[in-house]
């Protein structure tokens, strides 16, 4: 389920579009309804006003379910954390169990693909695409 809240949503759309093509990995089916989904990609900043809605959507997903936190805001609040901040939740893992973290602001589409492959490895134990080693 795409939980596209802010800027990361655009990179998620770009990953699904023709250049980066998430359909190659079998992950193209984006369904806005939580009842039909296995994975929730939290893409964007979670504000305190939005938090109950995110929790509700997570609860509505049937088991087994996983969560990918995409972008710095979903990992730890991102660039919007400052002293005396009143409006955002500092990271999706404050109230959701997160499986994969994808850093970046916003992360490149390649990073999102890598995150989905990581999740696949975590779920099935088998990684279908060779890992790129830095030289």
């Amino acid at each position: 389920m795409t939980f596209g809240l802010a800027c990361c949503a655009i990179e998620m759309m770009a990953t699904g579009a023709s250049r980066f093509d998430l359909a190659r990995f079998g992950a193209e089916v984006f369904r806005p309804s939580p009842r039909q989904c296995d994975v929730m990609i939290v893409a964007g900043t979670i504000s305190k006003k939005m938090e109950p809605a995110v929790k509700t959507l997570y609860d509505q997903m049937p088991e087994p379910k996983w969560v990918i936190a995409m972008g710095n805001c979903a990992i730890s609040g991102g660039p919007f954390v400052f002293e005396g901040q009143y409006g955002i939740v500092e990271g999706a893992d404050k109230f959701l169990p997160v499986d994969v973290y994808i850093p970046g602001c916003p992360p490149r589409p390649e990073a999102l693909i890598e995150g989905i492959l990581e999740l696949e490895e975590k779920v099935t134990g088998f990684r279908r695409w060779p890992r790129v080693e830095a030289k």
Partner: peptide, 15 residues
């Protein structure tokens, strides 16, 4: 509105 209120104006005073 307000579901993605990210306090830009307050940050303008803090940065």
């Amino acid at each position: 509105l307000g579901y993605i209120h990210r306090m830009h104006e307050k940050m303008g005073e803090n940065r």
